Simulated scan of single mutants.
Amino acid sequence: MPRPPSDRPVRIADAALELIATSGLHAVTHRAIDSHLGYPQGTTSYYARTRAELLTRATELLAERFDAKIDVTALDDVRTDDEAIAVIVGMMRRLQDAESDQIAHYVLLIELRKDPELAALLGAASPARRAMHRMTAQLIERCGYTDAEEHASGLLALLSGLMLARLTGNQQVPVESAVATFWGGMRRPVRP
């Protein structure tokens, strides 16, 4: 009878993300992950031969988790500004709940910015970021605002800044009031 697939590749990628979040990218080595997981030496090397492969797996896992957090929003029910703001604030709270992943995300964004392949998994052109941009633009359009694409970019930049402020200052950031203030500054079309 064949052996069931191992969950080790996911556990290894998760351990890499934990090490990145707690100790920085330099801490991610095959030996450190084996030690962190209590695996025999060489186990991580079996599943990810190189450090680049290890970082790729960790980055892919992070992108999957990010997708899962933003994909749960139903836009069809949104009719008002308050409902749209609530959707965005809810999404931001789900992302904040995964603090370790967010720290790893920012570390990877900075450290891997010159690696086109890995940066593409997390940066502005990543599938998750594009999906978040589309969702935000749709919310803005549903509420009758012009320049939805431009406003979505600005709102996502604001959210990114709020997340970074929270992570670096260990402070509560007024997400709802910041989003409501941004939302209130958008333009609606002039009706003739």
Score class of each variant (00 low, 15 high):
A52F: 06
V87L: 12
T43Y: 00
A58F: 01
I85G: 05
L121Y: 02
L55C: 06
L75S: 03
L108A: 09
K69V: 02
I70Q: 13
V107L: 11
F66E: 06
I110K: 15
L61M: 04
G123I: 04
Y106R: 05
A125V: 15
A131V: 02
G90S: 14
L118T: 00
D97F: 11
Y47L: 12
R113N: 05
I85H: 05
L121R: 02
E99N: 12
V89C: 14
A58K: 00
Q96P: 09
D81R: 11
D67P: 01
L109S: 11
E83F: 10
R79P: 12
D81M: 05
I88A: 08
E117A: 15
H105N: 10
Y106W: 07
P127C: 07
T43H: 08
T73S: 14
A52S: 14
E99K: 15
H105K: 13
E99R: 14
H133S: 10
S100V: 15
V87A: 05
L54M: 03
M132P: 06
L112C: 00
T43F: 01
Q138F: 13
A52Q: 13
D81Y: 13
E99F: 07
L112S: 00
A58H: 10
R51M: 07
R57L: 02
A68V: 07
I140K: 08
A119E: 03
T50F: 10
L122Q: 13
T50E: 05
A124T: 09
F66I: 13
L109Y: 04
D82W: 02
M132D: 13
R57T: 05
T136Q: 06
A84M: 00
P40F: 14
E60A: 14
A124C: 06
L75K: 02
Q102C: 09
T59C: 10
S45E: 14
I140R: 06
P116N: 10
R113M: 14
R93D: 03
R94M: 03
E60H: 07
L55H: 01
Q138T: 03
D76L: 09
D101Y: 09
Y47S: 10
R51N: 04
R93T: 15
T43E: 06
T136A: 00
E53P: 03
L109Q: 11
A104K: 06
A128C: 15
V107C: 01
A137K: 02
R134D: 15
Y39R: 03
I70T: 13
E53R: 05
K69L: 15
I140Y: 07
A86W: 01
E99L: 11
R129I: 15
V78D: 00
V78C: 01
T44Q: 06
L61C: 08
L108E: 08
M92K: 05
A48H: 09
R130P: 08
A84Y: 07
Y106M: 11
Q41E: 03
S45D: 02
D101M: 05
Q41D: 07
I140G: 00
A74F: 13
Y106H: 09
V89D: 11
A131F: 09
D115P: 10
R79E: 12
V72W: 04
V107G: 11
L118Y: 06
T56L: 04
A120H: 04
E64A: 08
